[in-house]
């Protein structure tokens, strides 16, 4: 399958840092100017990160607009949306209840022609038909990416894992068909439970899925254990986009990638960088491994 071997991550741009939320707050200042984000994307592209993952955070639209003004990036860079931005929905649900949250989330749909008719049915119709509701949410979430090259759309790990935990085969089948049929790109899945997801997909006959999961030397966010994740990686036909490869900045790139590239089936890696020094060092090390 085709996926960029190095994908720039987005956490540093939107105030996510799994080592320290305090550090994340500092970065929110730095990247409150979208041009600063575009500068990092451009630099990363030049260093070999030809793909970029972007969560559909409230700033996604603004960031994509800024990227769109850079012709080279717009033409050549591949984007990997991560949907939905779960934390936003949780916060809004806490603030205004689930129905209020959904009504607000679907607001942009009222201006999209494709969804106009559907939206007229209103929230009460959608409540009765969960899959129709999901399709509207996906449409809205993907609006910022309309004019860009999208290779695969990743389902956020919280949604994947929730559907997995509830044995909701219908949700997975719906998502796969919907992304394939409407966008013609690869449906993909984030997870914190790599072994369970891959085994269940195998049972359900979902062949060679593209999965984003944590792989790092210290087993951080690898459930139920690093050993079990490695076994599944060896034994199943699965394409992996590795995340948390530096265990959120805990590991040095040299030791981290020595481990990562000793594993089979790692097709790509998503890395967040925010400074030129960090980007140069990290991408140079990764490039050395993927070249050979």
């Amino acid at each position: 399958m085709s996926i960029d071997p190095i994908i720039l991550g987005h956490n540093q741009f939107i105030g996510v840092d799994h080592l320290s939320q305090e550090r994340a707050r500092g970065r929110v200042d730095l990247f409150s100017n979208s041009q600063k984000i575009v500068d990092v994307i451009k630099m990363s592209y030049e260093l070999g990160a030809t793909g970029m993952m972007l969560s559909t955070h409230q700033r996604a639209g603004q960031i994509m607009e800024a990227v769109g003004s850079e012709q080279e990036l717009k033409r050549n860079m591949n984007f990997y949306p991560l949907i939905p931005y779960v934390q936003g929905y949780v916060r809004r649900a806490n603030e205004m209840g689930v129905i209020g949250m959904l009504s607000e989330a679907l607001q942009p749909a009222s201006t999209s022609n494709k969804l106009k008719i559907f939206f007229k049915g209103g929230i009460n119709v959608m409540k009765k038909d969960l899959l129709a509701l999901l399709s509207s949410l996906i449409e809205v979430e993907l609006l910022p990416f309309n004019k860009f090259n999208v290779e695969a759309v990743f389902l956020h790990n919280v949604v994947t894992d929730l559907a997995l935990s509830l044995n909701a085969k219908n949700i997975f089948e719906f998502y796969i068909d919907y992304i394939n049929d409407n966008y013609g790109v690869k449906p993909a899945f984030g997870t914190m439970n790599f072994p369970k997801l891959v085994e269940r997909f195998d049972e359900w006959g979902i062949k060679q899925p593209l999965v984003m999961a944590s792989f790092n030397k210290i087993g951080f966010q690898m459930n139920p254990s690093r050993e079990e994740c490695e076994r599944i990686l060896r034994e199943y036909n699965v394409d992996v986009l590795a995340m948390s490869t530096l265990a959120s900045g805990y590991l040095e790139p040299s030791e981290a990638y020595e481990y990562l590239y000793s594993l089979p089936n790692i097709r790509s890696v998503v890395v967040g960088v925010s400074s030129k020094e960090h980007a140069t060092e990290t991408f140079k090390i990764i490039n050395n491994y993927i070249r050979f």
């Binding site: 929730l162 935990s165 914190m192 439970n193 210290i218 087993g219 690898m222 459930n223 139920p224 690093r226």
Partner: peptide
């Protein structure tokens, strides 16, 4: 010490170990 120092996998992670 960071949470990375203490992390142990769990049977199934949904929303945090």
């Amino acid at each position: 010490s960071y949470k990375q120092d203490f992390f142990k996998g769990v049977e199934f992670d949904l929303g945090g170990p």
